[in-house]
Amino acid sequence: MTKEIIRLTNLTKLYDKDTRPINNVTVSMIKGAWTSIMGPSGSGKTTLLNLIGCLDSPTKGTIHINGTEITKLNRDQLTRFRRENIGLIFQQYHLVPYLTALENVLMAQYYHSIVDESEAIDALKRVGLGHRLKHVPAHLSGGEQQRVCIARALINEPEILLADEPTGNLDQKNGEVVLKLIKKLREEGHTIILVTHNPDIGRLGDRLIELIDGKISSDTAINIKM
């Protein structure tokens, strides 16, 4: 039995009169599935991810996540909704440079609820970084930084993980480690929406949506769980 977790209805984002990164998109995503979003540069992939991640607001249309119409929420409500429901994985990791791996994870926990160091250590162990807790980002490899980023996204147990080119800055070996982790998270029941340029990575998901000029040009079920 599939359960819808995200529904976008007639979603449009206008930056100005001529720039429509998202143009009247209507789509649903199901809980526990890995949806890959592909498309050429400027096709609106990241904008779509930002809209789903409550980091941006649409010009028109509605977004429902877990039954909540987030397009009706104000700035602070969106922030609170995001921290409860969504984990973000960035291409450039975006770790705070002066905090250790552990502290970067703890920071996400601090802004969510109560800091529990053992939980943060567990999250880092889960991504294979139990031995790098006290290292600052400058002393971690790109793959390790990305894994800290994933641990940070996981620390508050969000249902949805949004990953924007998570392997874009990594070599093949580190990229595989990260993808393996994402697969594992999908198996654990997280809903994953992953933006990528790489068709091989795109096909690792259950569903592949392609965007061109802000519109869905194709929507392919690869391995939809029923």
Binding site: G53, L55, R75, T79, R80, L88, H94, A108, Y111
Partner: peptide, 16 residues
């Protein structure tokens, strides 16, 4: 700015 954006993305409200 990136640090602020990041804090917000992980759940820090404006007041924090």
């Amino acid at each position: 700015q990136k640090e602020i954006g990041l804090m917000k993305s992980v759940g820090a409200e404006d007041k924090k």
